[in-house]
């Protein structure tokens, strides 16, 4: 039987990380096609609920990326996001959601290669975990 390819959602801030993803494209750096990007203005726009909903809908992995600390287009958005996800990510780990399901990082507009690297890394780790199960709706069905 063919293994279903995992799907990964990436919430990328418009100003740095989304631009970094574009730069990977402009530079033709190849990476696995499992990622689906949702553009948000700022990493601070990402509500932890989005992540839970994604896992519930059956998305196999989540990546949230924002501008590096200090680079935020909205002055302090990524610092706010950092606090949120410090708590949230620790909570998910604590509950027993696999560590590699949900990832956070900073990607600048100049880091096209790094974006591709991270997508590769995240995709590999999510593949290793197999399909998302723990928070998926109608698990028994």
């Amino acid at each position: 039987m063919k293994v279903k390819e995992p799907k990964i959602v990436a919430f990328l801030c418009n100003w740095c990380s989304y631009a970094g993803a574009d730069l990977a494209g402009v530079s033709r750096i190849q990476y696995p096609p499992n990622i689906r990007v949702i553009r948000v203005p700022c990493s601070s726009r990402v509500n932890p609920l989005f992540i839970l909903k994604a896992l519930q809908e059956g998305v196999d992995g989540v990546l949230v990326a924002g501008c590096h600390p200090g680079d935020c287009h909205y002055i302090s958005g990524n610092y706010l996001a950092r606090r949120k996800f410090t708590i949230f990510k620790n909570l998910l780990d604590y509950l027993g959601i696999e560590k590699d399901r949900v990832h956070f990082t900073w990607i600048s507009a100049a880091e096209g290669a790094r974006f591709a690297e991270i997508v590769k890394e995240v995709t590999e780790r999510v593949k290793k975990l197999g399909p998302v199960k723990r928070l998926v709706k109608n698990r028994s069905a």
């Binding site: 993803a21 574009d22 402009v26 096609p33 553009r39």
Partner: peptide
């Protein structure tokens, strides 16, 4: 964004890129 974040970065995987 099906160019910068798709066709340009999955050049050797036309089927996956189409999906």
């Amino acid at each position: 964004n099906i160019r910068d974040q798709n066709s340009w970065v999955h050049m050797k995987q036309p089927r996956e890129a189409t999906e």
